[in-house]
Nucleic acid binder design. Structure first.
Lengths: 350, 350
DNA sequence: TTGTACGCGTTATCAT
DNA sequence: ATGATAACGCGTACAA
């Protein structure tokens, strides 16, 4: 009963059992070189009987590649990250590569740890979708220069030998705000940015640009952070949206429309609005960002900005494989996907 | 400019640069054995300059362990999976282990592929949180018997040498239904199970048990699947909930309360109810399952069953490490966490 | 205190 | 068609 932690069965074990050289077993396994039907049968029999699994470590050590790609995510509890990883996986699986995901929980330090851990296992390439940090970007540059293919997704990492895939959030933010302006709104709040963090956010800058362009003043009081959680945005940002909206509602003159940093913040905000006994969109209109599946199923359905998430994942994977499989240096590619405003009833009542 | 795909820097390279034997470098790296301060300095200098990273493959091949654990998830776009992985990560990180996540997209075949891929990289152990399948369980048994520590989470895999962590969904489902019954409901629908799939679902069986116990008839028409998506439940099950609820609303005599398989299905159902111009909970009461963050932020807030998700992840990680780090055989542990009904306004108006 | 020899499990190369 | 040998990069055991 008590199983002493067994050694893995090795190719050499098989060879011994089948009475051939290890090399012959290797040939059978990889279908390379000539093996007589008879020998092959012997080997196959031994393989079946002994339940052999090749040691990827040893194989990779010899072959110098693992056919595995690492994906670093900041936050797994995030529909965006999920959809992204689906896209990545689709492409990799089709090309026979495995995917290992590491999560950094939004910390630059954990980011580094994830890089190292994946590289230690000699993944063939890295897709990085975490938030940029000086620390992380410096390390990434080293990694790239050391010869490991790297593709960034939506992360501010630019390097002549790494590709970048992202979506045009500046324009996305702009269009969201522009939409509200075109509906006649003049006091438009933003939820999800605090004065100490997030001001770099592209979608926020797009919002600012739209206001400016239409001659609307940017009022500080209309920009709501949402407390502590603003530091660590993740899945649970309903909280952030809820708190942010409460701040805005408490103003002497609350906004007539708000643009939330993402759909979850928007959900929280919608809730705060309803709790206050106000109607959406009649009293306050609201726009989110991301178009997560739930967005079309709230009441009212949420107007939001859709980014082609899965496509970003797919493209990143393709760019990475291109680098991995090419012997020569590859020209840098930077691809920016367009975002699309999806108008629903949270801004335009029906 | 054009970088020819460089070879990784090896320990031998460092040794050559520092003018010592590889072994000496190894000693410096691992802090094992004696090295004179002087030699150490030379080596450290070379290390810094050449940007060395140990080859985990080679190291693992030699050491026969990777200090890495694999986690197999069915669906990454799932708050439950996300929270689970957080718990796992917390514990592993604290003990110096890395975590690689593989996603099987709910397919038994991909499940196997994930196992293989992780084992090929010789992870020290496996945590499996995917849906059970004959194929998968058979393979898991082999894996366990071959000596790799395995812990299952919420998956019907029982093996004398593998641990199991789960929550009492039978009781959770029972309490949800019981709650509705105690509020006076007699026609209680279930959303998220179709006659061709999901009948094995514990929370559904709990629902059945509660009905039976209270002498309520189980009516087939009150059990709604939700179409194609029922086959592949994942994050996007608002759809499923929405469709399921529409089926129920179309009945000659619709239910006065529904219990949804999970919170997302519940959100979809709530939406369908509102669209139909009915009120929650006055016209139809609703209970979800999981207590995802959003559940407390819908309108009305959702009554739901909470399971200690992160704790399950943490415990699973601890059990796994126990197995990994123990030389002797370890006694099987099966731990079932209790679930907790969280009553909010979707069942009890205020 | 430092170095040498060998092995981890594969596969590439060359020989037979 | 098959086998012997070396090597991938590191660490253990032992020698110097």
């Amino acid at each position: 009963m008590s199983k002493p932690p067994k050694r893995h069965v090795t190719l050499t074990d098989i060879a011994a059992a089948a009475g051939v050289a290890p090399m012959t077993v290797s040939r059978v396994l990889n279908g390379s070189g000539y093996v007589s039907a008879e020998t092959r049968e012997k080997v196959l029999a031994a393989l079946r009987k002994m339940n052999y699994r090749p040691n990827g470590l040893a194989r990779a050590l010899k072959r110098q590649r693992t056919e595995t790609v690492g994906l670093v995510l900041g936050d797994i509890a995030n529909p965006f990250a999920a959809e992204l990883s689906r896209g990545v996986r689709e492409v990799l699986a089709a090309r026979g590569y495995n995917l290992f995901i590491c999560v950094s929980e939004q910390s630059a330090k954990e980011d580094l740890a994830a890089f190292d851990s994946l590289l230690d296992h000699r993944v063939d390439g890295l897709i990085v979708a975490t938030r940029a940090s000086k620390l992380g970007n410096d390390r990434l540059a080293e990694i790239v220069e050391a010869g490991t293919p790297v593709v960034a997704i939506g992360r501010d990492f630019r390097h002549p030998q790494a590709d970048l895939v992202t979506a045009d959030h500046l324009r996305g933010g702009y269009e969201a705000a522009q939409h509200l302006i075109s509906l006649g709104h003049r006091r438009i709040g933003f939820i999800g940015v605090s004065l100490t963090s997030g001001l770099w956010l592209r979608r926020f800058q797009g919002y600012l640009e739209a206001l400016r362009e239409h001659g609307l003043p940017v009022e500080e009081e209309l920009v709501a952070g949402g407390g502590a959680s603003a530091e660590q945005p993740g899945y649970a940002t309903e909280e952030m949206g809820y708190e942010g909206m409460r701040q805005l509602l408490a103003l002497r003159e609350p906004p007539t429309a708000v643009f939330a940093r993402n759909d979850f913040a928007a959900f929280g905000a919608m809730n705060a609005i309803k709790r206050a006994g106000l109607r959406i969109p009649q009293d306050i209109a609201i726009v989110g960002y991301d178009d997560v599946p739930l967005a079309s199923h709230t009441s009212p359905p949420l107007t939001t900005v859709r980014q082609p998430t899965r496509e970003q994942g797919r493209l990143a994977a393709e760019l990475l494989l291109r680098r991995i499989e090419s012997r020569e240096p590859v020209a840098r590619e930077e691809r920016i996907f367009a975002c699309e405003l999806v108008v629903r009833e949270s801004t335009v009542g029906k």
